[in-house]
Design a protein around this nucleic acid. Structure first.
Lengths: 214, 214
DNA sequence: ATTACTATGTTGCGAGTAT
DNA sequence: TATACTCGCAACATAGTAA
């Protein structure tokens, strides 16, 4: 292939862009790229043969510009990487888990409820749906969403931490993923809130596969 | 460095994104990338050692996901290429040349003038300013601009070809670069039109260096 | 079927040096 | 100074095959 020419092609393009001519020397480029002068000399000759660059040798240096072939290689790689980074995961898959009851407890606090209403736009049903998910998939899914911070508070009996929420849709119903402060990073269960009791409304059972969308 | 792992990293990321796990086999990947099974096997092991991927070997295949190091490499390359492709040359430098008179001739045709007014937004002064420029710089400059096509027409005496125009600013005055149809590709002189006589308005003389902006 | 070892090609790198 | 040879060595790729 031609993988070994890519870095040098990027170097040239970064120096003077895709269309201008770079006046330099093999030793100068070699120094900056931390390889030998001989390697740069050989690579540039090879790249010229491959139609990646145009090259003109003068007594005291080189004139290098990127040829159509080189631009094509750069663009191909750019588009591939753009595809990778611009792709945002729109659906998260998980399996319904038996709730452990804690969600119901803190969900009922009016200090949280008021913020759910004002920041998420709905009165949350007092309880959470637990969804077992793949940790890395969650990262990809959440990374494209805007976090909504629900502030914590303290009562005379205990302290309630802040919550990070992400608005989602569950079978068309607007809800949110709720991640309590200081959740273990290895956590593989997400808690989901919604204005209705999702379990009965959507007839969900433990083990059901559920897809939520952003 | 690690240039030889880049293509494989891109392959994995394209398959399943930056966060999901790819279940495949060394021979399947080798087939698709047109290298040997042994090479893929070795490279994946190396990439795991380098912290580019996470890898799990099972009796009937592999689970591969991209690690933080791999994401860093991909992102670095993405940002470099984005810089190269997103950089739009905003200024084009040239030297005022003596006009050859032809511009003035066709500029006065009302069939062109009507289109200048409707498509470029100004009545063009009947004459062009000739600017000697670097061919490759022109390509970089024009590639980021929207071409405006002025249709050709035929009179009883001759045919007037279509013109490709690019709106620009010359010292703050809105004008356009005009490239006649079938211009020689090696042409190094651009013709510029504007609503005023640029030469007198801007006190330009032959040999003056002029910068036009998009 | 897998992955990955060993042995053997092949290619790339760079020190020395010619031009 | 510059580019670009030659050539010894190291790195990479692959065929065969073990596990």
């Amino acid at each position: 292939m031609g993988e070994e020419y890519f870095d040098l092609l990027v170097y040239i393009a970064k120096e003077k862009g895709l269309f201008n001519t770079l006046k330099s020397s093999t030793s100068k480029i070699a120094n900056e790229m931390k390889v030998s002068q001989q390697t740069i000399s050989r690579k540039l000759r090879d790249m010229e043969d491959l139609g990646l660059i145009k090259r003109e040798v003068t007594p005291n240096g080189l004139s290098i510009s990127i040829a159509d072939g080189g631009r094509a290689v750069l663009k191909k790689n750019y588009l591939e990487l753009e595809e990778i980074f611009k792709e945002k995961k729109l659906v998260l898959k998980g399996i319904i888990e038996k709730g452990i009851g804690e969600g119901k407890y803190y969900m009922s606090m009016k200090q949280y409820q008021q913020q759910f209403k004002s920041k998420l736009g709905f009165d949350a049903y007092p309880g959470t749906l637990n969804l077992k998910v793949n940790k890395v998939e969650v990262m990809g899914f959440l990374s494209s969403l805007e976090p909504v911070i629900i502030e914590g508070f303290t009562t005379k009996s205990r302290t309630y931490g802040s919550l990070t929420c992400y608005k989602i849709k569950i079978n068309g119903i607007g809800g949110a993923i709720v991640i309590p402060e200081r959740t273990r990073h290895e956590e593989e269960t997400l808690e989901i809130i919604a204005p209705v009791h999702l379990r009965s409304k959507l007839n969900l059972k433990d083990g059901t596969v559920l897809r939520v969308k952003s």
